[in-house]
Simulated scan of single mutants.
Amino acid sequence: MNPLFLRLFDDAAIFPPGNVPMAAAVAAHRERRGSPLEPMLGPFICSLARWDELVAAAAGGPPLAVSLVTTSPELPAAPEIDIVAVEMVGATEAGAVTTYAEVPCGEITATRVAALRDAGLRLKIRTGGVRADAFPSEAELARALWAAVRGGIAFKLTAGLHDPIRHRDPATGFEHHGYLNVILATAQALQGYDIERALADQDAERVAAAVARIDEVLAKAVRHHFISFGTCSISEPVGGLLSLGLLPEDLR
């Protein structure tokens, strides 16, 4: 499998707009762990407010790798749950596990990135939501990604990235970023190129072809920075890669 897609999809099934019930989401995640999709799957994402639900749903099964969205550095514990990362708005110092500090896209500057990096933190960037104003523009996201890559920090994205290519949702009218556009923009930032055009490109074949040309060395550097993104659907982003010929057919 292309290393660009390994552990790329963090499972946010319980969050809007998916809103899958906890027990069903945990069961589906564990089923995927035993399927050919496993190499692409990141941790299950859950908020601290729903911890008790998660513990009940996970009981009696194999360990569940979880990224916990929380406001507290104090972490709960349960036998079946392995907290592998923490995601916090305004985090200022790293905790016992990998810690992502969520920062509004427009506030991500070289100075802010340097402070987070020096504190041992990773960066979380929100790229969508249930309102139009939750989606940063190409220019805003380009500035944030440029600051992250040039500042040497790892980052994850969240929301609005089900489709591999930038597009306008016909139902809502929202302009969604594409995760392949982000991969391409990250690669171009590492090479010192302008990246806003890569984020804005809506030509699926052109973007897919450019991503397919990323060699193994550059792919490793891209994923050193772009760790993953949270998605309430795993099947949709996988289906997008299949439709573009970027995954083997046996993953259908």
Rank of each mutant, 00 (worst) to 15 (best):
M40I: 13
R131N: 13
G152Q: 14
A134L: 12
E249Y: 13
E80G: 03
Q202S: 11
G230W: 04
A185W: 02
A187I: 00
L8V: 11
H177F: 05
I183C: 02
R7V: 10
S47C: 08
D10L: 02
R150P: 06
G239C: 11
L141I: 11
V97N: 05
G129N: 05
P76E: 00
A58H: 07
A139V: 09
A49F: 09
L246M: 15
A114P: 00
A57K: 01
V103Q: 11
T158W: 02
Q188E: 14
G128V: 01
I227V: 13
V89K: 15
C232G: 05
F135R: 00
A94M: 12
R50S: 05
K220L: 12
L54Y: 07
L247I: 10
S137K: 10
G60F: 03
L218R: 03
T231P: 14
K124E: 04
A119N: 05
T186F: 09
R150F: 06
A23V: 12
R7T: 14
I195S: 00
Y179G: 01
G245M: 08
T111F: 12
T186C: 14
L75K: 10
A185M: 01
D215W: 09
L251H: 09
W146G: 15
A114I: 02
E249D: 15
V113R: 01
V217R: 13
V238F: 03
R166N: 03
A198P: 05
T231C: 15
A115N: 02
L48H: 11
R126P: 04
F44A: 13
A144V: 00
D11Q: 02
F174N: 01
A115W: 00
T231V: 09
R206H: 09
E236Y: 08
V238D: 09
N2W: 13
E249R: 15
R33F: 08
A57N: 04
C46T: 11
G240T: 10
G173S: 00
R33Q: 15
F44C: 10
D11L: 01
P164Q: 05
A154E: 13
V217A: 14
L242H: 11
G61H: 03
P62W: 03
A147V: 07
A204L: 04
P164D: 06
G129I: 01
L161E: 02
G129W: 01
P164N: 03
A185E: 02
P248S: 13
C46L: 09
E93W: 07
V97W: 00
Y193G: 11
E38R: 14
A77P: 07
E31K: 15
L121S: 02
S47V: 10
M40L: 15
T92Q: 15
F9S: 13
S137V: 05
G152T: 12
Y179K: 04
E140F: 11
L64P: 08
S47G: 14
R122F: 12
P76Y: 04
P170F: 01
V182H: 04
D163V: 13
A58I: 09
R30I: 06
F9T: 11
L68K: 09
D215S: 08
L145N: 08
G18V: 02
R112D: 02
F229D: 00
L121Q: 06
I165R: 03
A139N: 10
D203P: 06
H225I: 04
E87Q: 14
I153C: 10
A78P: 10
L218A: 07
A154P: 09
D11I: 00
T92F: 10
A132H: 04
P16F: 06
R32I: 08
C232N: 05
E249T: 15
